[in-house]
Design a protein around this nucleic acid. Structure first.
Length: 476
RNA sequence: GUGAUUGUAGCUCAGCUGGUUAGAGCGCUGGUUUGUGGAUCCAGAGGUCGUGGGUUCGAGCCCCAUCAUUCACCCCA
């Protein structure tokens, strides 16, 4: 027999299978998030996995465009290309051989949906969306090429109540998941804008944002180094330093930020815009009062807001944010990257020809939440058990009898299964053990006669003889 | 895209400066006499050492290539 080369199956880089064990945990997380979203009045939406590349490109910056998965056109995709196209390389070729791409996030498809359905939708429009997204990134810890996002956005209002609700939703999701030690970092792009203006660095916002975003990672000095490398003047850097060293609680940080911007206000920075040289930059002030208002609304909604922390160094990459920005980190987990993030954008639908539609949204990363939950062992036992009770049988008559009980249990809404073969008890018990099944009902000759069955709690090892009605009562 | 890291049994790994039939733990299968599992004990199955070349009398170990992995940077959920 000729030796056949059997190729062993491998998953594409950065993708995973979710077996029953993982699915149990993921379902628990997704259900928690969905429940919270629903209770805040968000309605579900799903969009296609693929979008036209024209919808996707240019929305995530150059970096983002690189990370888009493109879908090759069907058929002879090279037929419409020429030798000249090939010579000019990828940018010239790409539009001719690929028209579609996999979605990169859920926000842009949402914006597309809103624009396409603007006449049918009732605003403010709240939707949530739980679907996978794809990025051609290099995978590493907590980073995958296919992962799920759980987004909730509301568009068509600029009320700060929405921001406050986001804080509440985050708190409630985490409460359901059992995560207690987390921080909701909050900032406002307007404050950052104010900082930029106060040091007279207009036009270099993105450089500043990228650099300060690393503050907690590489430290103040290295950030300042990087800033000077990026062409910020020594004077500007000197003015920046104190802003990044704010300390104390959120309110005192806010006050300090306000003051710092005031201090550093220079005539140079404001001469052109007509803002008084000595005043706090108007935009920065606006950001600060917005943030204060959000915090006050959070309290009005009955939350102490103890997890919320103002962090002026929070920048977030996505350039479409214009107001509040959020990021959530779990403090006692080994995974330090953020598990959730979001913010307000004033003009997301503008690129699709629908300007002035303000919105705010939040996104949970299920995959990272899963990693955190597992790390902290937060999955409740009952969430992981698929079956509640296993019927153990010995022989034909007992199996036959057990089948009736099985249906009775299932009709009562209790997930139950019977070990299909009449093998040794040891094996049946081991099966229940491995499958995390919490209860066993023993159906033997004696039990059948008495109509009282042995209900065994596998965790405690206790066993009691009960009627089927009593068993149902116990397990409900 | 840049810089590293690792690739030996289903899993986690050992294998000394290259030397005869490649090891351990866990897991798995079976048994410990047939109605009670999860850390008893006994036995067993399972690997062409990522792949392809090369050096050598001899390669899991050295060299080259290649693929894959993990991690960090960039960026991000």
């Amino acid at each position: 027999m000729a030796k056949q080369s059997i190729e062993k199956p491998v998953l594409p880089k950065g993708t995973r299978d979710f077996g029953p064990a993982q699915m149990a945990g993921r379902t628990f997380i997704l259900d928690s998030i969905r429940t919270v979203f629903r209770s805040f009045g968000y309605q579900p939406l799903e969009t296609p996995s693929m979008e036209n590349l024209s919808v996707l490109t240019g929305k995530y910056g150059d970096e983002g465009d690189q990370l888009l998965f493109k879908i090759l056109n069907s058929g002879d995709f090279l037929s419409r290309t020429t030798e000249a196209d090939y010579q000019q390389g990828a940018p010239q070729m790409l539009p001719k051989i690929a028209e579609k791409g996999l979605r990169y996030d859920l926000t842009v498809p949402f914006a597309r949906y809103v624009v396409m359905n603007q006449h049918e939708l009732t605003f403010p429009f709240r939707r949530f969306q739980i679907q996978p997204v794809w990025r051609a990134d290099r995978p590493q810890k907590g980073r995958y090429r296919e992962f799920y996002q759980c987004d909730a956005d509301v568009v068509g209002t600029d009320s700060l109540i929405c921001e406050a609700e986001i804080v509440l939703m985050i708190e409630q999701v985490f409460a359901r998941l059992g995560i207690t030690d987390f921080t909701i970092k909050i900032n406002n792009r307007k404050i950052l804008q104010g900082v930029v203006e106060s040091i007279g660095a207009e036009g270099k916002e993105s450089d500043l944002l990228v650099a300060i975003d690393k503050l907690d990672k590489i430290g103040l000095e290295k950030v300042l180094d990087e800033l000077s490398q990026r062409g910020f003047s020594p004077a500007a850097i000197e003015q920046l330093a104190p802003i990044f060293e704010l300390s104390g609680d959120t309110e005192s940080r806010l006050t300090a930020a306000e003051k710092a911007m005031q201090h550093s206000a220079t005539p140079k920075a404001f001469g052109a815009t007509g803002v008084p040289a000595t005043g706090v930059p108007a935009i920065g002030q606006q950001g600060i009062s917005e943030l204060r208002e959000v915090l006050s609304l959070v309290r009005d909604m009955g939350s102490a807001g103890e997890h919320v922390a103002f962090d002026i160094t929070l920048a977030r990459g996505l350039s479409y944010y214009t107001g509040a920005i959020f990021e959530v980190k779990v403090n006692n987990a080994s995974l330090t990257s953020s598990v959730s993030g979001g913010g307000r954008y004033d003009n997301l639908t503008g690129v699709f020809g629908m300007p002035g539609m303000s919105g705010v949204g939040i996104s949970f990363g299920v995959d990272r939440l899963y990693d955190v939950m597992e790390d902290l062992q937060l999955f409740p036992q009952e969430a992981l058990a698929a079956t509640q009770v296993l019927l153990v049988n010995f022989d034909k008559p007992s199996k036959k009898h057990a089948l009736g009980l099985l249906s009775t249990l299932r009709d009562a809404g209790i997930s139950a299964e019977i070990y299909p073969d009449a093998v040794k008890m040891k094996k049946q018990f081991a099966y229940a053990d491995k499958k995390n099944i919490p209860y066993i009902v023993v159906v033997g000759a004696e039990e059948m006669q008495q109509k009282r069955y042995g209900l065994k709690d596998l965790k405690s090892g206790e066993q009691v003889a009960l009627s089927i009605e009593e068993i149902i009562e116990r397990l409900k």
